[in-house]
C-alpha cells in the first residue's frame, strides 16, 4: 500500500502531497522535509530507492524520481514492488504532461486542483486505481467539461 505521494521541488517547497495514512499536520510536514533532505542529498545517478529504517521505521520504503525541478516521491510499505512504483510515477507524470502540455512546476502551483484530480484518478486510498494514461485522461476530460459548464453557468449568473 502506498503511504504517501509527495511532490517537492529543489527548494524544499512541497508542491503536492497526499497521505494515505492518518498523520497529523506536523508529522506530515516533518515527513515531507525528511523526504526532501534524503532525495536532494542523492545525486541523480544513484538508484531511486531509499530504505532507511532509522528514518521511516521497518515497513516503509521510499521510491522517487527526479524530473527537472521536481522530485516525485512515493512512500510505500514493503508489499509494493519498487519498480512498479517507478512505473506509477512515470504514468502520473506522463498524464500530467498531456494535461498541461509540457508540464512544469508552475502548472502544479497554479493548477494544483488539476494535479490532484489526476492523482485521485490514479491512486485512491493508497492503491492504484488506474494505470492507463489514456483512461485517466478520459475521465479527467469529462470532469473538466463538467467544471467548465458549471463555471460558465456561474459567470452568466454573476453577469446577470
Amino acid at each position: 500500500m502506498i503511504k504517501a505521494f509527495i511532490v517537492v521541488n529543489n527548494h524544499a517547497m512541497v508542491r503536492l502531497c497526499r497521505f494515505y495514512e492518518q498523520l497529523g499536520v506536523d508529522k506530515q510536514t516533518e515527513l515531507c522535509q525528511t523526504v526532501y533532505k534524503l532525495v536532494t542529498s542523492r545525486p541523480d545517478h544513484l538508484c531511486s530507492f531509499v530504505d532507511d529504517e532509522k528514518t521511516f521505521g521497518p515497513d516503509t520504503k521510499l521510491v522517487y524520481r527526479h524530473f527537472a525541478t521536481l522530485y516525485f516521491c512515493i512512500l510505500s510499505d514493503r508489499s509494493e514492488s519498487e519498480l512498479a512504483m517507478l512505473d506509477l510515477i512515470q504514468v502520473y507524470v506522463e498524464t500530467l504532461d498531456k494535461v498541461f502540455e509540457n508540464v512544469c512546476e508552475l502548472d502544479l502551483i497554479f493548477n494544483s486542483p488539476k494535479a490532484y484530480t489526476v492523482l485521485d484518478e490514479t491512486v485512491v486510498g493508497g492503491l492504484v486505481l488506474e494505470i492507463s494514461t489514456n483512461k485517466i485522461l478520459n475521465v479527467y476530460d469529462q470532469l473538466m467539461k463538467l467544471e467548465k459548464m458549471h463555471s460558465s453557468l456561474m459567470d452568466k449568473i454573476a453577469i446577470s
Partner: peptide, 13 residues
C-alpha cells in the same frame, strides 16, 4: 487562466 481558477481572481492574486 485554467477553469479551476477561472474567474477566481482573488485566489490567483
Amino acid at each position: 487562466m485554467a477553469p479551476f481558477l477561472g474567474g477566481m481572481r482573488g485566489l490567483t492574486v
